[in-house]
Amino acid sequence: MRGRLTGYWLFAPAALWLALFFAVPLYSLVATSLFDPDGSVLTGYDVAWAFGNFPDAISEYWRPLVRSLVYAGIATAICLVLGYVLAYAIAFKAGRWKNLMLVLVVAPFFTSFLVRTLSWKLILADDGWIVNTLQFVHVLGDDGRLLATPVAVVAGLTYNFLPFMVLPLYAALEKLDPRLIEAASDLYASPARAFWKVTWPLSRPGVVGGVLLTFIPAAGDFINAELLGSPNERMVGNVIQNLFTTTGDYAAAGALSVTLMLIIVAMVVAYARTSSTEDLV
């Protein structure tokens, strides 16, 4: 018979790794955020319970912080619309093309994130056909551009995190019994009504999962802002990264990082109250 302890032994190595290199570091990060702000990498830091780091960091960097949440929010909303259409098409309309379409959804993962993001510089280039077309129809002025604008950053974020939205949505829609939708229309529900009363509520676990998997990495991302934006589009990730690696202001970087984490945890808890972690994992 299986020993009662077998489960613990099997789980222990992974748990230990996650505890040591995920949970303990979070504690170190919180400690870092309370460092004496007068310390430096050279002289060393003391944990001085300097809670003042938080208001200091937020008052100095609230713009990139808010910008991150706004850009990530817009990108998530667009991803939800595009992702829902695509997941619905794959689940119910694709027929024998289903597998091919699923492979194409994950195809972006097969090549490098940074290299793909750089190719958006070419797509949105000042003399590219998208900019030229938009200038032609006067959406953009004659010297208007897309690169180095919030549009480019949000487009990049949307593109990069769209598969994370499609996959959970598809998983939820695939489980949905199409006979339920038929039953709704047999009972004289219009297609729109059938969608809002049957399909949408049943796909909710996928919506919750997809929104979280899209919003969280998008809010922390700084690659799109750096490569496709200008300093005016700088997101909180850019600031944290610079403070840690270039400026060496660990106290402010830690405070900002903890703030971002707390905001995201608060949003996740508020949003995902309906589903337990067991459902998500």
């Binding site: 995920f22 570091p25 979070l26 170190s28 990060l29 969280i216 990495p217 809010a219 922390g220 991302d221 700084f222 909180v236 990730g237 944290i240 990264q241 840690f244 970087a253 830690g254 990082s257 971002l260 984490m261 995201i264």
Partner: peptide, 8 residues
């Protein structure tokens, strides 16, 4: 977010 895991 990766930036939080990386910095911690």
């Amino acid at each position: 977010p990766e930036i939080v895991m990386g910095s911690s």
